[in-house]
Design a protein around this nucleic acid. Structure first.
Length: 571
DNA sequence: GCCGTTTTCGGCCCGACTGTTTTCAGTCG
């Protein structure tokens, strides 16, 4: 709602800083793990960017379900006019013009007018603008919104390969939200250094996967792929690479904070470097670290750059030592041919060893998940025996016998304790009853965590990004129970899941929860999904010590057995 | 509309590209 208000204020031509205040508040609320509707006025006021006025507005909406200010604004500018802003190249000034002069109230009306050539002749609009608007409308009709990161990474890699092969590039890097490992990505940002920017641009806009060129200048170009994905590229010289990377990686909010700090110190930051304002002398910019160092801070990892406390932490020397992919010692959630995977155990061991892992857990589905050929008690015990036999032959590598046990829709577990006891590790997860009431689903997971043999809750919210919403659970209750019962929460690295999500990961960490970062691999190449898992973990400020499968084998087994022997079950 | 070891009033990040303009506004990131 605050974003909509900001849009309307923008169309009205209101004070830009007031508009920014609404946007900043919206962004900060969006990244809150807590429901702001349940917060007191005092607590609301503590959220950065929310002062007396916005706190009162949130409160008003939480109490009455309405916001009078918003209702009043909508009388001035109909909701559909806000929608016009989603057309690329069409901003608030044009939206206002179209609404005032032609009474265009939504995208359909805009398309009609444009097709009939009735936009031409308005001040500042000629044939070119009209056709650009039509192109923009066609584009948002094809696809609007964001793509899951798993879809975007490979596209970015293709572009970078194409540039490396065909263009005179030095350094090359993804930037933007892709580099920050956000779970969904709007467009791909690529930064390169080159002494021949024009040449790079020519190669870029002529890559085979490019369908349309949105803009093309000497240092900055944007294209759209055949699939409708926008790719922005920026070329700078080597001595500006760091500054440009920082600028282009964002987030916008993080950059604004840095630049504000710079201004107070008599400095200026842009994509070319960090400068002394008075002398215009360049103080740095070849490396990202320059910017942070000159502002008096340690380097802040891209995943943290959301203006959600990382700058304060950096200034205080309290930044986390984020987990890295090389810290991962094994994958604890893997399927074999026995259920719905593609490989035999022996093949999986080979793949794991090439990854440098010290152990993996074999966790096929349990009997309740018949569609995935879940293992009967007999089959899982047979697999357990087989794993123990293989283990004897392995050197410097351990195989854990496990299961991804279904938490059935009535809340019971799919295997009895005397079966679970024989396995090395038990993951529990939900595959049915997604639409049950909040208390019911929460209770299913809580009671699974209260079982001493359940070490990990896999994909705890069941969401599939862009396809299926999370089921309705009381996350607070689940994270609290996880912490109390020494149950790890999975960060499922499957790119469509990324479940637990970054915001909750950070909250869980504050509650003392431990994590397992697992790929849920069903086929060999999915072992590579681990990077998405660590990316999400890093966005949640996770350190090596928070992660079960960053521990060595002995410590891992110690953690699992601690819960088993302690028996924290509520009786 | 927010915010303050420079300020409770007066600031609030910075630059590239496009299309329409004869010098710049609008849009975007």
């Amino acid at each position: 709602m605050f974003n909509d208000i900001a849009d309307i204020l923008e169309i009205r031509g209101d004070n830009p800083f007031r508009i920014r205040a609404y946007r900043r508040a919206a962004q900060n609320i969006d990244s809150m793990p807590k429901d702001v509707a349940a917060m007191s006025l005092d607590d609301l006021h503590k959220i950065p960017g929310i002062g007396a006025d916005l706190a009162a507005k949130i409160h008003e909406y939480a109490q009455s379900g309405r916001l009078e200010f918003f209702d009043e604004l909508k009388k001035e500018v109909p909701a559909g006019v806000i929608g016009l802003l989603s057309v690329p190249g069409l901003g608030p000034k044009t939206a206002k013009l179209l609404f005032d002069k032609l009474h265009i109230k939504d995208i359909d009306e805009l398309e009609m007018h444009a097709k009939e050539g009735r936009l031409k002749g308005l001040p500042g609009i000629k044939a070119r603008t009209e056709s650009n608007i039509l192109k923009g409308i066609a584009m948002i009709k094809r696809h609007s919104g964001r793509y899951p990161i798993g879809r975007m990474r490979p596209v970015a890699e293709e572009f970078m390969d194409g540039l490396r092969r065909g263009a005179p590039v030095g350094e090359i890097s993804v930037a933007g939200s892709l580099r920050r490992w956000k779970e969904t990505i709007k467009d791909i940002d690529i930064l390169v250094t080159s002494r021949a920017p024009q040449k790079v641009m020519e190669v870029f806009v002529n890559l085979p996967q490019v369908k349309d060129v949105i803009m093309k200048g000497p240092t900055k170009s944007s294209v759209v792929t055949n699939e409708g994905i926008q790719v922005d590229m920026r070329v700078v010289s080597g001595d500006s690479f760091g500054a440009a990377l920082a600028y282009f990686t964002g987030s916008r909010e993080h950059n604004v904070r840095l630049r504000e700090m710079a201004v107070r110190k008599g400095l200026k930051i842009n994509e070319y470097g960090i400068f002394d304002v008075k002398t215009d002398k360049k103080l740095g910019g070849a490396k990202e670290e320059d910017i942070y160092r000159i502002l008096g801070m340690p380097y802040i990892a891209p995943e943290l750059r959301e203006d959600s406390g990382e700058i304060e932490a950096a200034l205080m020397g309290n930044l986390p030592e984020l987990i890295e992919i090389k810290d991962i010692k094994g994958d604890l959630h893997i399927h074999t041919k026995e259920s719905d995977g593609s490989h035999e155990i022996e093949e999986l061991i080979n793949i794991a060893q090439t990854k440098g892992y010290r152990y993996i857990a074999i966790t096929d589905h349990s009997k309740g998940l018949a569609v995935a050929h879940g293992l009967s008690i007999e089959r899982v015990l047979e697999q357990n025996r087989k794993i123990k036999a293989i283990n004897k032959k392995l050197k410097g590598f351990k195989l854990l016998s496990g299961t991804e046990m279904d938490i059935k829709s009535d809340g019971t577990l799919d295997y009895p304790d005397d079966v679970l006891r024989q396995l090395d590790i038990v993951i529990a997860s939900i595959h049915s009853g997604f639409r049950q009431a909040r208390e019911k689903i929460t209770q299913r997971i809580v009671s699974a965590m209260n079982n001493p043999y359940v070490s990990i809750i896999a994909h705890p919210t069941g969401r599939l990004i862009g396809e299926r919403d999370a089921y309705d659970i009381d996350m607070e209750e689940i994270l609290k129970t996880a912490s109390e019962t020494r149950t790890s929460i999975e960060i499922n690295a499957y790119p469509l899941r990324l479940d637990l999500s970054d915001i909750y990961v950070r909250k869980a960490k504050k509650l003392g929860v431990s994590f397992a970062i697992n790929t849920d691999a069903h086929v060999s190449h999915q072992f590579d999904y681990m990077a998405y898992g660590t990316g999400t973990a890093r966005r949640g400020w996770i350190e090596k010590g928070d992660v079960l499968n960053a521990a060595g084998y002995d410590m891992l087994m110690k953690c699992i057995n601690l819960k088993r022997t302690e028996d924290t079950r509520k009786r």
